[in-house]
């Protein structure tokens, strides 16, 4: 069972709630995914005010844990303020911390991220930082008080899938005991299976499901892929080799034919 800040969760899929065709379809996707945790953007869904009441009410009725996020924040102070609003609105000290540094790639501003993580951790927040695959930044985030890391595998919404497998491998190897959740860039179930095979603890998705023609079916497909990848990681996979390895015995046959 995956443990995040002392809370056990059974699903290894975290689902975003933005950009679905309708709240009813969002609810279908959440149910089909069997997820335990959904993330909700306070800023984007509310124009900075607190009047997104009806939408938040719908989210609350989903019966899953809410991980509010600070999507769209570009500075430390914006992110800290949004986190505090989120704590009030959703009565949770969990926060997915996003501080965006580049408008086109939505790459995190890792300097501001570490700073905001330090402030929020010291104020009792349980911070889930959206970060890159940089090991030094990861160290700094842990020093700042984070107990979970959420590296991207490609830019948000790009659907490219893991673009730097060696970096993800070394991140897993460097932090064997820290829950690592791949947060952004997943486009297809096979991408999710790939990072789970590397030993990542969970996957966070939004666009890949919300933008599918049938979001509920796609959510279920991802759940299957994530379970398959996790099971394969534990089952011990073969390493690739450059020669055939016959699966039937060759004894009794001429070796040099």
């Amino acid at each position: 069972m995956l443990e995040l800040y002392g809370t056990s969760v059974s699903s290894r899929l975290l689902l975003g709630t933005a950009r679905y065709p309708s709240p009813a379809i969002l609810a279908d996707a959440v149910r089909a995914s069997k997820t335990d945790i959904v993330t909700v953007s306070l800023r984007r869904e509310t124009a900075g005010s607190r009047t997104g009441g009806a939408f938040f009410e719908l989210i609350r009725t989903l019966g899953v844990r809410v991980l509010p996020n600070t999507a769209g924040c570009h500075t430390v102070s914006e992110a800290v303020l949004t986190a505090k609003m989120a704590r009030e609105v959703f009565a949770t000290d969990w926060i997915k911390l996003e501080v965006i540094g580049n408008h086109d790639t939505l790459q995190p501003d890792v300097f501001a991220l570490v700073e905001a993580a330090r402030i929020l951790s010291s104020e009792g927040f349980k911070v889930f930082p959206y970060t890159t695959d940089d090991l030094v930044v990861a160290e700094r985030l842990l020093e700042a008080g984070c107990q979970v890391l959420m590296p991207w595998c490609a830019p948000i919404g790009s659907a490219m899938g893991p673009v730097n497998l060696p970096a993800l491998r070394s991140m897993r190897a460097s932090f064997p005991d820290v829950p690592l959740i791949v947060d952004a860039g997943i486009g297809r179930p096979s991408h999710a299976a790939t990072v789970m095979e590397l030993g990542f603890d969970a996957v966070l998705l939004n666009t890949a499901v919300a933008g599918a023609a049938d979001p509920a079916a796609m959510a279920a497909a991802f759940t299957g892929a994530i379970e398959a990848g996790r099971t394969a990681f534990h089952a011990g996979m073969l390493e690739p080799r450059d020669m055939a390895a016959p699966s039937t015995p060759v004894i009794g046959k001429a070796v040099f034919s």
């Binding site: 984007r44 869904e45 509310t46 124009a47 900075g48 005010s49 009047t51 997104g52 009441g53 009806a54 939408f55």
Partner: peptide, 14 residues
Amino acid sequence: MIESNDRGPISARS
């Protein structure tokens, strides 16, 4: 398209 009942003026970002 923003999930909100707010009828206030357009935001700078929008």
